[in-house]
């Protein structure tokens, strides 16, 4: 369990102070894959660096399994960092050492001797699918392979927590998926708590159970991924869920039409011919003005904006009709016609 309480971090720079984090509180359950998402400059890296005390909080505390990390001595903290390991956007492998040596690095720091460390390292290279690259140097590997080596290295000390700071941001989509799969597998197999820092919604969607949205150094929303995606409340969340812009790209029809936002919150209904049935059962004609839905573990999440012509009664009927389906919510919204 990682408990972050009222964390504030200010940097003193030449041009004054920068408040990178403001009163951030989060609790990350054991075994979770917890996403922290936000735009560039939101404070994500600062937050993750506070979790292993690479950055000392200005105010507030970080507790891991009940231990306040801020109260530890330098030596205790170094020992703790074998339990809380990290992978990075730039992989950060030692370029002059081969893969095996890179994976052995954390063990070497602990003073583990050659043969034993090597055995453990080979096991881990095997887990990440790179047993055959033990003798290769990082420069000879692709980005995805380098990140696998970095993951193996992060696992050698059998950590409880794995922090991933934009770990897939330098990778192409296919490689990103394979690395995310690997992280998911490691989480499931070893029960390691994973904290995923990213600016990409797709990353959170594909592996996280919980998510916190960071904006301007503050947590503006947090909860289960499906919940946050279905009801993005804050502007920051909406920007992330609808990166193309929510209402601006609408294909809006005549003035006087009504608009209904249909929210899929884990419904199985995405495949059903909803609009056709609305016409047949209720005699209401609806157009899709905008749609952004995503399938997550077999369920649909996202938003559809329907435009219907008709009176207020038709709007109420439509909403009532749609919301009988489990996992669907609907509300009338005002859309400006341009």
């Amino acid at each position: 369990m990682i408990e972050i309480k009222n964390l504030t971090k200010t940097f003193n720079t030449a041009d004054g102070t920068v408040e990178a984090l403001r009163n951030v509180s989060l609790s990350i359950p054991d075994g979770d894959i917890f996403g922290i998402i936000g735009m560039s400059g939101a404070g994500k890296s600062t937050l993750v660096r506070c979790i292993n005390m690479l950055e000392r909080p200005t105010e507030g505390t970080v507790e891991v399994d009940g231990v306040d990390l801020g109260s530890l001595s330098a030596k205790e903290l170094r020992a703790k960092r074998h339990d809380i390991t990290m992978i990075f956007q730039g992989f950060n492998l030692l370029m002059q050492k081969n893969c095996l040596k890179n994976v052995c690095f954390p063990l070497e720091l602990q003073g583990m001797k050659g043969a034993e460390a090597k055995k453990r390292a080979i096991e881990l290279l095997d887990i990440v699918g790179l047993a055959d690259k033990a003798k290769a140097y990082p420069a000879q590997l692709s980005g995805g392979q380098q990140q696998r080596v970095a993951i193996a290295r992060a696992l050698t000390t059998q950590p409880k927590v794995l922090l991933c700071d934009e770990a897939t941001s330098a990778l192409d989509p296919n490689t990103t998926n394979s690395i995310l799969e690997l992280i998911k597998e490691i989480n499931a197999r070893m029960g390691i708590t994973v904290v995923v820092i990213t600016h990409q919604m797709s990353v959170v969607e594909s592996i996280c159970k919980h998510v916190a949205i960071l904006d301007g150094g503050e947590v503006v929303e947090q909860g289960e991924v499906s919940e946050v995606f279905a009801h993005p409340k804050s502007q920051a969340a909406r920007n992330l869920v609808f990166p193309e812009g929510e209402d601006s790209s609408l294909n809006v029809g005549n003035a006087g039409e009504h608009f209904i936002r249909v929210v899929y919150n884990g419904a199985y209904a995405a495949g059903k011919p909803m609009i056709a049935r609305l016409a047949i059962d209720k005699g209401i004609e609806a157009n899709i003005s905008y749609a952004s839905t995503k399938g997550i573990s077999g369920k649909a999440f996202g938003t559809i904006l329907l435009s219907i012509s008709g009176d207020d009664q038709a709007v109420r009927d439509t909403i009532e009709y749609l919301t009988t389906e489990p996992g669907i919510e609907a509300e009338e919204v005002k859309v400006h016609v341009h």
């Binding site: 292993n52 690479l54 170094r78 020992a79 703790k80 960092r81 074998h82 390991t85 990290m86 990075f88 730039g90 950060n92 030692l94 690095f105 954390p106 070497e108 720091l109 602990q110 290295r153």
Partner: peptide
């Protein structure tokens, strides 16, 4: 970033220098 990696891995300043 490599130095940050070493710090996050629990290296002492001396280990960072010679490793």
């Amino acid at each position: 970033n490599l130095i940050e990696m070493a710090q996050s891995t629990g290296a002492t300043p001396f280990q960072i220098i010679y490793k």
